[in-house]
Amino acid sequence: MKISGSYTLPVAPERAYQILQDPAVLAQAMPGCEGLEQIGPNEYRMKMNVILAALSGKFEGKVRIADAVPPTSFRLIVEGSGRIGFLKGDGLLKLSLANTNPSVSTVVSYEGDAHVGGTLAAVGQRLIDGTSKMMLKKFFDKLVSLAH
């Protein structure tokens, strides 16, 4: 599944770039994330407990940052698997200065692929698009609040 979109963060690109790669910030912003633990340069082990209405699922996986070009772009690769299925997202994030007055802000646009497998893929098709959008929205909303 292709995913794309953009959000605006109320900080300058340099700051946006920094928080988007800050494991402490990412851990707080990623919905259901229960912690990121560095296991290599730009690579983290992740634990998630995704709760969505009655649905709940624990996932373990990795977050990796690649092709970093500060402060304009990087790739974010997220992989997780659990009993109910597995998820893989691979997206290119691009940051650009938004010319908005009065305060400076950054447009973060993303484009990539999301793969879902296991039970989730087999029974969740109807809801994958909407819920992935919701997760991304939650992620960026939280980032906005953390950016201040």
Partner: peptide, 10 residues
């Protein structure tokens, strides 16, 4: 159905 699929486990 979600419980049967073990997507939910109240």
């Amino acid at each position: 159905p979600m419980m049967k699929l073990r997507l939910a486990a109240p």
